[in-house]
């Protein structure tokens, strides 16, 4: 899985029928070495109530359809967790509470 920052929302009234009712968010990948946003914007289906600015974990491919909300839908990217903190290399490289590394 990857981590991303939620940078926006996507509103689409004309879309595949099975996508109706799903929340589309705009996310940008975060490089877990530098903890900086790097990479292309992606549209991801929110399944956990993520908000703008939050750091989230996304899953891709058919694994992203393994949630109640996205099961059987034309989705290949979903937000499945909101990150509280990440410890790596014996230090806290991200802490939602402290907003460090953001």
């Amino acid at each position: 899985m990857q981590i991303c920052r939620v940078v926006g929302t996507v509103v689409s009234t004309t879309k595949a029928e099975k996508l109706s009712g799903l929340k589309l968010l705009l996310v940008r990948p975060i490089d877990m070495d530098t903890m900086e946003e790097k990479g292309p914007l992606t549209v991801s289906i929110d399944t956990v109530g993520a908000g703008e600015g939050e750091v989230v974990m996304i899953v891709g491919g058919s694994s992203s359809r393994q949630t109640a909300a996205t099961d059987g839908t034309p989705v290949d990217n979903a937000i499945v967790a909101i990150i509280d903190h990440i410890d790596a290399g014996h230090k806290r490289i991200y802490d939602k509470a402290a907003r460090s590394g953001s």
Binding site: A81, I86, A88
Partner: peptide, 20 residues
């Protein structure tokens, strides 16, 4: 190289360690 903590997550991930 490390661990990830996320209390708000998909029910399917409950109880599964997430590692860096």
């Amino acid at each position: 190289e490390g661990t990830v903590v996320a209390t708000v997550k998909s029910p399917g991930l409950e109880g599964i360690p997430l590692l860096v």
